[in-house]
Design a protein around this nucleic acid. Structure first.
Lengths: 109, 109
DNA sequence: TCATTATATCGTAAATTTACGATGATTGGT
DNA sequence: ACCAATCATCGTAAATTTACGATATAATGA
């Protein structure tokens, strides 16, 4: 008679234990940072906190409209926050969401 | 006479201290996971290690060609590894690259 | 050898993203 | 009230992504 063999389940290097709205939010954040220009904007914001749109336009070799569009994507994904100050808008990192992102990555990877 | 004021540099919540090829690789990995279907494939691989393409095709409501395309993106981004076994190809998480990703995120966020 | 199985790749259509110039909206100053 | 400054949004073209069916490729078995 054949013996019953219990195959050890290989331990995965990550759990990816997330679902629903949290997963959607995480995927959206991944997608937003999965673009070289937007990643550069994030890096710029680290060294230039509370800078205004024009500063980023001056820094990058792309049109103002395009920068504004990228800022919108980053804002809607939760990576950055915009504050209207007079005619300008100053941007900074959305620390709370960034912390949330780091915690999720720590948990699931 | 006005006093010279040294403005404290606000401490950023993350450094994003990365550049060059490492930054490119990270952005590519972000982009690959920034798609709901590919994220689901990754989750499936956690619970079904070394499964073959057909298993994923059966699991997802999309065509075989599309699954194969997504697998290629995940493979080229470094998230997964494919091993040809006869006529089939079995996939598993690319543990080394996943560990690299987690380390980079820990460092820069 | 021939058929079958499993998957990758090709060609392509539709959807989405990315980029731009032009325009609209809001604020601040004169 | 008017003008200038700053930024967002609109309209749109080009590029990329996503999806599909069809076909090619490679291994297995009869």
């Amino acid at each position: 008679m054949t013996e019953e063999v219990f195959q050890a389940i290989p331990e995965a290097c990550c759990t990816l234990d997330i679902s629903g709205a949290e997963q959607d939010k995480l995927v959206t954040m991944f997608k937003a940072l999965g673009n070289p220009t937007r990643f550069e904007i994030m890096k710029f914001l680290v060294t230039h906190p509370s800078c205004i749109t024009g500063d980023i336009v001056d820094y990058l070799p792309i049109a103002q409209a395009t920068v504004s569009q990228h800022l919108k994507v980053l804002r809607q994904a939760g990576w950055i926050e915009g504050t209207v100050e007079g005619t300008a808008t100053s941007y900074c990192l959305h620390e709370e969401n960034i912390a949330w992102f780091r915690q999720r990555v720590d948990e699931i990877f």
